[in-house]
Amino acid sequence: MNVSLFITCLTDLFAPQVGMATVQVLEHFGCKVDFPEAQTCCGQPQYNNGYPGEARTLAERMIRVFKNSQYIVTPSGSCCAMVREHYPLLFKDDKRWENDALEFVAKTYEFVEFLTKVLKVDVAGLSLPSETAVTYHYTCHTRGLHMGEGPCVDMVKKLGNTTFAPLEKHDQCCGFGGTFAVKYTDISAAIVKDKVTCGNQTQADVMIVNDAGCAMNIGGACHRYGAHFKPRHVAELLAEAIDNRHPPQPKG
């Protein structure tokens, strides 16, 4: 199965390790991964701030770049939700673009969605290198993709060496919201502090946050206010579990 990686600009710059983990997991489950280097940004910031014209410029670029891809997979869910929810609106009734846009939308998947819906992977048998308590933040794009928390949480629960600790108010936004975080700092701070507090209450080591933006926000608040847990992408956990299958043997 051929998969083109849609890395997204934030993951590219701030979380390259998530991108590498995504590649490793996809390859482990039998995909042939390519990375079209002409890709840039999906236009989400432009669209969400009321600049649909600018967003469309970037959307056209995305559609052109991934024209020949079979599947497109992204580790950053809000970008996938941007494509899924808003690209059809951007190209509505535009004869020249609409078909290409809808085709692009149909083959674009969020990472967890792709693993569970298309590849239907079974992670039983994989196990983390050490006992890890995991909690899960329901990032808002999950709502946009109509996924629910099930697919990701079920997968994590099946991983060996993990205990799952449910997060209070797991479906409450982390307060990122793109430019919202800098425009309405006070409100954003109150919301993200709430997330850190709830995260700390779980006593978990890791909070799964499958979106680069949310991870920057929650991570930044964890660092400022102190937290027992680290926000991580589920791809990173899966990659660790895959590495753990053949741990390096001690010499001698």
């Binding site: 710059l13 390259p16 206010y225």
Partner: peptide, 16 residues
């Protein structure tokens, strides 16, 4: 506004 209330991650030396 970002760093008034939280820290900002430093981009790693190499991007993806």
């Amino acid at each position: 506004g970002w760093t008034e209330v939280r820290d900002f991650p430093l981009p790693p030396k190499k991007n993806f």
